[in-house]
Design a binder for these strands. Structure first.
Lengths: 207, 207, 207, 207
DNA sequence: CATGAATGAGGGTTCATTCAT
DNA sequence: TATGAATGAACCCTCATTCAT
């Protein structure tokens, strides 16, 4: 199951790609403002730059839009994480960079993260396995980074939980920054969180 | 702003209290199953044990129900945390108990936590200040517990961030347990998380 | 399966009866003009004298209206036939009266008959058994009348086919009168058809 | 008014003929399954083997397809009746053959007959005169057959009504066979109906 | 001549809310 | 206070038709 499995009446696949990108862009913009349920399909069509009829040439139901949006957001995060991991040198400093970049990405994607936290449950019901796999994949990337970057061996489970924590704390900044940024700048937040990670991994942290 | 500020046509305040408790119970049960948006006011009325007309004697809009539910859930968590902190002895062992109990509470309240994560954003728009304050209050309880329970001084901010992390990781177990419990039992999860907290706080952890 | 098995949100059964009669009356009037498919639920509501919301308090889907209409028309025909058969004297003259009255009923109910012929197929798919039974019931009434009214014995099958023919030729007058009444007055049509029936039944026909 | 009066953008008349035959074949197949209103033009195009754009090169509106189908079905019945009448010998035995063949044709064309009975009313509104003429033409063929085949003179009207009855009872078998074939085989049905016709015409019936 | 993407009016249905009883 | 019938705006989605390529 992936975005391509959403059926379209249109045959031209590159056009599908183009129109769906418009839909995703429009929908995200609207979902940010009012959430999925309060956004109408007509608004999505309009924001995407075409008519309601055309919208329904590229999707089957409103829920398809949600899935399209989920996939797009997920892809963006995954690609970023993946790119970060492709650096050659694998040192604790690399780990710092990865976590730092990830948090900053979450900062940029605050609204997107919020959308997901609000709606992932609805998706989950219909595409439990897909969504679950996507989430685990991202955590596993982080876990691998942790294992690769630290000099000493670590229990799988421990690495995975640290990865999970980092991952969710990233979301937390995105989702709860309205609480956090009364206390922290993004820089201070990242710095402190990285310190905690290093302590959890029993790594020395020299700056 | 609190639950009492929701207007009712009915004068008898103890009746209001009784009816609203019915509403909260009915609504939580329904929201767990289908979420706020997919639950109708008619269903809420029925589940609460009275007619749609009566429901509207005790609330003004459907959103009021959401707020009622939020307040009820929030109260339950807050009361629990507050009770935990009222123990006399304040040692690292107390901290372990507090965190452990909090995580187990979140485990019990998985569905409730999910409701909040799905809908808090809508609430936030209308009652930003109230909700923000509620969230901070809970974090501050944890923060106070941390400061009280550890033997050495700690920077305010650091304590607050640890509190935040613990708090959100509790949510995480509630909200994302469908991911986590493939890897961890609740016991293992709590154990490892507490270890991390102790490392972050530079406390020795003897079991 | 009967009209009562159509679900309503409203509890007051006598109100349901009243409103459904309004719906039936409104719907028949519209279906006569434009057929089932070209009539909108909004039009049905308006013609029935209430809002679209109210319409849907008394039915579940547009198809329910069709079934309501079918049942109402069927009832009317059945009641009439049944009443005709309750006359004491059972002679060939009674048979003449019955057939005559039935044809005149079909003449009055031209539009209703048309509705049924247009839409019974859609109903049939969903309620095949119900509709089939209703149709057979009406034919059986006629068959019984034939058997009772003629002085000599007759094979069951033959009686049933004659009944069927009379029944459908009644429809034919209703449904195809735009063809027939270029050639026949209703009186001449009935007279000739009755003659044929008598010949088929080998009865003398004195006027 | 006939099929040729339906306008087409295409000039090549033999191509028009070919394409329209494809349309008729596709449409009948679909109308049999789901009726006219529940069949979409897209489906008709697809079933016909070309694109929606091409479909609209050969028709102007969806109703045109209905008329095309009506004309095709009508033609087939008319041609059959016409062929039957071209036999030289004109005896009561010929009449038996004609009626028998006609009933068997209706048996084969059950679905087509159903389509017509469902939709002829919509057609009638727009092309009342055309359709009316077509129906009369078919009845008149039967009427002529009756007059030619019987040895004694008969009143025009009587002959026409018998023709009408035969005609409609043929439809009846097609349209209501779901009722009739619980009681009759096609052979028994035809046999009995022919007997009735002979009685109506006061002809002896030796087998 | 053939294609198929685009259109948008309009369809069936839902549901938060009101108000007379 | 409690009821539940009534309302109608608004929702999601379909589909006949057009027209640029």
């Amino acid at each position: 199951m992936n975005a391509h499995s959403i059926l379209s009446n249109v045959k031209d696949t590159s056009l599908i790609q183009k129109r769906r990108n418009q839909i995703i862009k429009g929908a995200i913009s609207l979902f940010k403002q009012k959430g999925f349920h309060r956004t109408t399909t007509r608004e999505i069509a309009k924001e995407s730059g075409f008519s309601i009829g055309t919208l329904y040439e590229y999707i089957r139901t409103k829920e398809d839009v949600l899935f399209l949006v989920y996939e797009a957001i997920n892809d963006r995060v995954y690609q970023k994480l993946y790119a970060l991991m492709s650096q050659e040198a694998q040192s604790t400093e690399t780990l710092v960079t990865i976590i730092d970049s990830y948090y900053r990405l979450m900062d940029e994607m605050q609204d997107e993260v919020t959308i997901l936290y609000q709606e992932v449950k609805s998706l989950e019901t219909k595409m439990r396995e897909t969504v679950l796999q996507r989430e685990r994949d991202k955590v596993l990337l982080l876990k691998k980074a942790i294992i690769n970057c630290i000099p000493h061996p670590i229990r799988e489970e421990e690495a995975e939980l640290v990865a999970n924590n980092v991952f969710v704390q990233g979301h937390m900044w995105g989702f709860r920054s309205w609480i956090l940024n009364k206390q922290f700048t993004i820089d201070a937040y990242i710095e402190t969180q990285i310190n905690f990670v290093f302590k959890a991994l029993e790594l020395p942290r020299e700056k």
